[in-house]
Nucleic acid binder design. Structure first.
Lengths: 337, 337
DNA sequence: AATAGGTATCGAAGCGCTTCGACAACCTAT
DNA sequence: ATAGGTTGTCGAAGCGCTTCGATACCTATT
């Protein structure tokens, strides 16, 4: 392993000079800089991460806590994780992957050991058990998702309330009076996951304002669960003409079932999905949808965290405005025979 | 931040004694050990990761390189990543998430900086550009996936060759003579991804042995691509009665299309999928499938890597035997009218 | 001509831990 | 009673880096 000292010797300067070339924290003459850089290249020098962390008390690592669960939005989670990792690299940080397995203790461990300079938490619940710990340490952090109480926290999320409202609006504008919402798995609501409840909130209040009828039913993914859920919905509200789906793994089963029952999309039923664009465009019907901006969320989270590291941070809630893309699955409500 | 020295003082022992209590590398009297452990608890001490890494030249971190691409198997990748992270924790390691973004340089950077003690590479191509670098460093590593040349490498993978063979066998045994294979996206084959080619290999050689006709077509995910691919297949081989799918995002579109064309599964067409169990059980038809054992692969990879750290490692290729689970999507070939 | 202010570099201290050799203190077998 | 072995503990030396004065030189100002 090549060390700083070896580079210094090779370049004929002192170790501190090499360090300053690397960090740019003091001015170095062009001549010296070039000599040092050349030595670094020739020797194939890489600074030792541990030594660096010890001396500077900064690890240049961001911890990312992803949920262990696999009952929802897996591809989105993955996309966010990759976006975080990629964005972090552009700021000179690496990402440490923490699973839910360890629970809240992971927060303590990471903060205590100086393993990471800060952390990003995904899949935050409304009353998340990690939050008290987070507030207790002075560990800089950013949440992806919105807890009930955001005081003293920085959060990034899609504005799910607005998303719900937007979906209802779009359908109402086309004359749909009876709208059904196919939601996430029941477990997601039982956990009081922020985004699910907020979406529901937006859906309900906007439909109240617009005077349309709304029926919400949670639904596990998969064909069978969807079949049961859809049957119940149509039983309870036979006049349903608009459906909003917020569950990736229910999308395709829903479309298959509607097709099978001879209900045409969008002639008989309009469908709006809340899902990644990839799902919306690859479905058997091009779905009108509100996208989950995974990339953007990951990027924002990293940028806010890095800002905090540099002292320019502020506690703030960043809600990304939803965008509804009209594709082929929505149209005017059929006129009642 | 509490330090070792503070713990030592609090417990009335020397720093080295505390260190030995922590590492267990020298015997410590029960009395002393308890006093030290008590002090650790009372002070809320966490060893500093950087200092530890510097002094011991072990970081207790495993680097995991995931592909950046999102054109295939995203949920599987995520599942493997989580399995790796979880398994790593049980051995006292954390996981650093590296994306493909940085390319092969990441290998150099991680190896050079001592950031990680070893690395796990996912999504290995047959002739992967990271491999020469990996062989050049003495960085312990494990691949998930199989390159063309495995000398000096440790690899873990599902035996995709056997998987292909198994699928053909199952269909042939039921009397299917004309089998179509719906493969991964063309890009996957162009990249020479090991698993895709190996599967194909197994499919081809077994079908040759069994004397059944096999038609392989790559296919991008999504409904439209699937529609085109299926039409071509049925055009070219109208007598096709067995279909093998190796592309998660083609599964549901395929089933929808078959349904739409009035081809019953499994009465008219038998379908075997190569996909995670979750997909197979949640599809609109319970799919006979060969599962991708993501958990097992992640766990194996970590265990082999840890074994290498401890000097018990060996270069070896671990192929996990495929298991075909019969569900409702396969049956005897229809007798030709 | 003397001084102030920059700029470029060095030396040394120290970050918090691991680990090696030393050494008491005790036990056991002669 | 003594040599030889254990066992438990300590002190000190570093691991490779950052960073804080200090210093030496150079240019601009009075």
């Amino acid at each position: 392993m090549v060390t700083l000292a070896e580079v210094a010797q090779h370049a004929g300067v002192s170790a501190s000079t090499v360090s300053y070339v690397l960090s740019g924290k003091r001015s170095i003459s062009a001549n010296t800089r070039q000599r040092v850089e050349r030595s670094i290249r020739e020797l194939g020098y890489h600074p030792n991460a541990g030594a660096r962390a010890l001396a500077s008390s900064r690890s240049n690592i961001i911890a990312l806590m992803v949920p262990l669960r696999t009952d929802m939005y897996v591809p989105v989670m993955m996309e966010i994780a990759i976006a975080v990792a990629t964005a972090a690299r552009t700021h000179g940080y690496d990402v440490l992957l923490l699973t839910g397995e360890e629970g809240p203790d992971a927060v303590r461990r990471v903060a205590g050991s100086g393993l990471a300079d800060g952390m990003i938490l995904m899949d935050v619940e409304l009353d998340d058990e990690r939050l008290p710990l987070l507030r207790a340490t002075d560990q800089p952090s950013v949440l992806i998702g919105l807890p009930a109480d955001t005081t003293g926290l920085t959060c990034v999320d899609l504005d799910f309330r607005a998303t719900g409202a937007l979906c209802v609006e779009h359908l109402a504008k086309q004359g749909h009076q009876d709208i059904a919402v196919i939601g996430e798995a029941p477990a997601v609501y039982e956990r009081h996951t922020g985004f699910a409840e907020r979406t529901l909130d937006g859906l309900r209040s906007r439909s109240r304002e617009l005077g349309v009828r709304l029926l919400h039913r949670p639904c596990d993914g998969g064909y069978d669960a969807m079949a049961v859920t859809l049957a119940r919905i149509l039983d309870e509200r036979p006049g349903t003409t608009g459906i909003i789906v917020q569950n990736e793994s229910a999308v395709e089963p829903l479309l298959a079932l509607l097709r099978q029952q001879g209900r045409a999309v969008p002639e008989d039923v309009s469908v709006v999905a809340i899902c990644p664009d990839q799902v919306a465009t690859q479905a058997s019907v091009r779905l009108t949808s509100v996208a989950i901006p995974a990339q953007e969320m990951g990027r924002h989270a990293v940028e806010h965290l890095v800002a905090k590291f540099e002292g320019r941070g502020s506690d703030e809630v960043v809600l990304i405005a939803p965008e509804l893309t009209v594709r082929g699955s929505t149209g005017p409500a059929p006129t009642r025979p």
